[in-house]
Design a protein around this nucleic acid. Structure first.
Lengths: 335, 335
DNA sequence: TTGTACGCGTTATCAT
DNA sequence: ATGATAACGCGTACAA
């Protein structure tokens, strides 16, 4: 049982350096290469990762930091999808993956991440102020953001165009004849929520509708959607655009409880196209984004940056798609 | 900027060994300790993980292997919950976490895991035959299983009692007067699915009902639930117990499409108590299990084993709870 | 093409 | 209580 390079070297009758070259692809004579490979094979030798990292400075491991509120972690399948996308790409390239799910303090987390000899890191950047993201960007660690803030223009990131997507969704509500279109926002303080508000406003303004009257603050949760819709119904709306599907599900319940029909009385639209969206009653119109693809692209970007450190940042904006379902079926509202 | 122990040592006027003792808690005079701590503080020194691992043989990192079919990964929030539970405990104890999501070949995965200098590993053991799990158990790596097979009695694991839980759910259907109770199984070849079948059979047998006539194979997916329920309706049933909530949701759709009312015509029960279960029409009776807690317990067990290597395996069976909702509301079936 | 020898940054064992 | 110093296992200039 060869446990070190020296063991393999001894068993093959060569030096440790030669064994290393065989493993890592240096110049080796074909005959010696075969001899060493045989020994490697039959002993099932595995290089020691720590020693390799120490000597080379590269670990072959990247970090993934999902630094968000626990209720978002729980709320939907955002994270399974994101991780799946990331994992697919990393596994393909034999790159390891360390994971931090976030609710610890930012300083503590940052310290632990930076002490891990990682080659790079992928981090969610949803919050406008986020000292963990700041710390990562300030560090030497190659970093790719998922989502991005205005100040992150020099960084690599993967994102969608929330402004345009929300604009399109809202314009769709306008196009089916709705005039009093409410919006339940996502968590204020996240860029995605603010951008969706902006898109919503842009669409209303272009349609000649007042852009600020029917906005209710939410936080991406189902209960916020429920409360927000209730509030909007009080003010009088014929359509509600929720910043995500989860909130839309809550809104739907609030509407039903008040005896309102969707879409006849109030049209409803969400954002994400989670799997339950198509199964609601009625099926929910929503903006589809591929979380999995965002994860995959983030991993691609990081590997890209690692392979070409001087290549500058890599910025990717992924497409979204408005999926029209019965919750915004055409026709003028009844009331 | 002190980057190594030697830098700190020089700045503090002591030897590298003393600095190491300060960091790791050896015997150091109080005055020197304070002096070194000051330097540590102001330089923001971070020990090199790889060097530490190489020298000590411990990495402070454990592996988490979710080695399952991709559609299960996607199907529900099993993995967010499990990871959250694991992560909570590991973060608490400053233990790192490497992640493998599984669809690569088992040999490849095993090799990569074993080369990572991990202190231990948590792995899902859902499939009856699983060479990855076998390989992990055969290796020297301290391992904790989530779920377990009959042959794993010598290993540490966290699981629920699927047989009893399914028995209780089925007995509940019997208790509300149902006589033709069908079962849509989970993925054959997983222990959870087989155990739930066993529990279902036990309950029927005890009630004097034929235990084998109304079983349809599924695979834990929504579409399998839909197809399974359709099949069972053909054969004539007044109740359906699905091996998980996702399948139950599919079954519900199949029943609705055939104009059957739940629970009046057919009572319906699931397993898991995913968040949508309470929101179905009607709300779904199901067996609640806390996936998050399973993750947390698995992490606790692993840390326990690591702290006390000679302590033998640690086996945990977590409780489940039958949650009765309207889908099995009492009364005799209409037909 | 192959081997020698040093360095990577810690931990841990001895002396002192 | 503190300081040398030898591992830990591998990568890699440099020499041969």
């Amino acid at each position: 049982m060869a446990r070190t390079l020296d063991d393999v070297a001894a068993a093959s009758g060569v030096s440790r350096a030669t064994v290393s070259r065989v493993i890592n692809g240096g110049p080796v004579a074909e005959t010696t290469r075969r001899r060493v490979l045989d020994v490697l094979e039959e002993t099932g030798f595995r290089p020691n990762r720590a020693a390799r990292t120490l000597a080379s400075g590269r670990s072959g491991v990247v970090g993934v930091v999902l630094h968000v509120d626990p209720h978002l972690l729980f709320g939907d399948r955002y994270f399974s999808q994101l991780l799946q996308g990331i994992s697919d790409v990393l596994a393909e390239r034999s790159t390891g993956m360390m994971l931090w799910l976030g609710h610890r303090t930012r300083e503590e987390t940052l310290d632990r991440i930076l002490s891990m000899s990682l080659d790079g890191v992928i981090v969610t950047a949803h919050n406008i102020r986020d000292t963990l993201v700041d710390g990562l960007l300030d560090s030497r660690l190659p970093t790719v953001l998922i989502g991005h803030r205005g100040a992150d223009r020099a960084a690599s990131f993967v994102d969608i165009d929330n402004v345009t997507a929300a604009d399109i969704a809202t314009s769709h509500l306008v196009s089916i004849g709705r005039r009093r279109i409410g919006h339940v926002t996502g968590a204020r303080g996240t860029f995605s929520a603010e951008d969706r508000v902006t898109g919503y406003r842009n669409a209303l303004r272009r349609a000649g509708l007042p852009p600020d009257e029917l906005i209710v603050d939410g936080d991406y949760t189902e209960s916020a959607g429920e409360a927000g819709a209730a509030e909007l119904v009080e003010r009088g709306v014929d359509a509600v655009f929720c910043a995500n599907d989860l909130a839309a599900r809550g809104a739907l319940r609030a509407l039903h409880e008040r005896g309102l029909h969707v879409p006849e009385d109030v049209a409803l639209a969400g954002f994400d196209d989670l799997d339950f969206a198509a199964h609601l009653h009625p099926p929910l119109t929503t903006v589809r984004q591929s979380i999995r693809q965002q994860g995959a692209e983030a991993a691609e970007s990081l590997l890209h940056v690692l392979a070409d450190p001087g290549g500058g940042p890599r910025r990717v904006i992924l497409p979204t798609e408005l999926v029209v379902r019965r919750s915004t079926a055409g026709g003028v509202p009844r009331n």
